[in-house]
Simulated assay, not measured.
Amino acid sequence: MNLQKQILDNKEEYYQLAIEYYYNIDEEHLKNIDKIVFKSIVILIDHEFVPTPCIEIKIELYHQNESDRISSYCLYIDKEKEFIYEFLIDK
């Protein structure tokens, strides 16, 4: 199956995978999260420090009563959905 079509047909599954990986690194921090926003899914062809080709899934995390994000999380996986790298930016 074409990778683009696979991602389009299963984008919710990809976002849920990113949320699961985020739970694994920071479950305590997640208790303060009231809103998760799905930002993007990108196929990376070339990257400075992440092995490519790969898929980048980005989510942003918010408190319910705040409009400013409190962190962004990026998960990098291969086409078989195996973990490559993750990146968390706290505000």
Rank of each mutant, 00 (worst) to 15 (best):
K79T: 03
R69A: 14
F38R: 09
I55G: 02
L75Q: 03
S67A: 13
E27H: 14
E80I: 02
A18K: 02
Y23F: 11
H29I: 11
E56M: 08
E82L: 09
E82F: 06
E20S: 10
N32Q: 12
P53I: 06
K39C: 07
C74G: 00
Y22G: 04
L61F: 11
Y85L: 09
I55M: 05
V42D: 09
I33P: 05
V50S: 00
Q64E: 15
I19Y: 14
F83Y: 15
V50M: 03
P51C: 07
H47L: 04
L75C: 05
Y76T: 01
I36R: 06
I45A: 06
I57C: 07
H63L: 13
E60P: 04
E86Q: 10
F83L: 14
Y62I: 03
Y73H: 09
D78V: 01
V50Y: 00
E20Q: 11
E27I: 14
I57Y: 00
P51D: 15
N24T: 13
D46Q: 05
K31M: 13
V37E: 15
L30W: 07
D68L: 12
K58S: 10
E27N: 13
V50A: 04
V37A: 10
I45P: 01
K81A: 10
L44S: 01
F49R: 04
Y22M: 09
I33R: 06
I70G: 05
E60S: 11
S71I: 01
L44P: 05
F87L: 12
L17A: 07
F49T: 08
L17C: 05
T52I: 01
I36T: 06
E56V: 01
S71H: 01
Y73W: 12
I19T: 08
Y76C: 01
L44K: 03
I41S: 02
E28D: 15
D78C: 06
I33W: 07
C74M: 12
N65K: 12
S72I: 14
E82T: 02
S72W: 11
I70A: 10
E66M: 12
I33L: 10
F87C: 10
E66N: 12
I25Q: 14
E66V: 07
C74T: 06
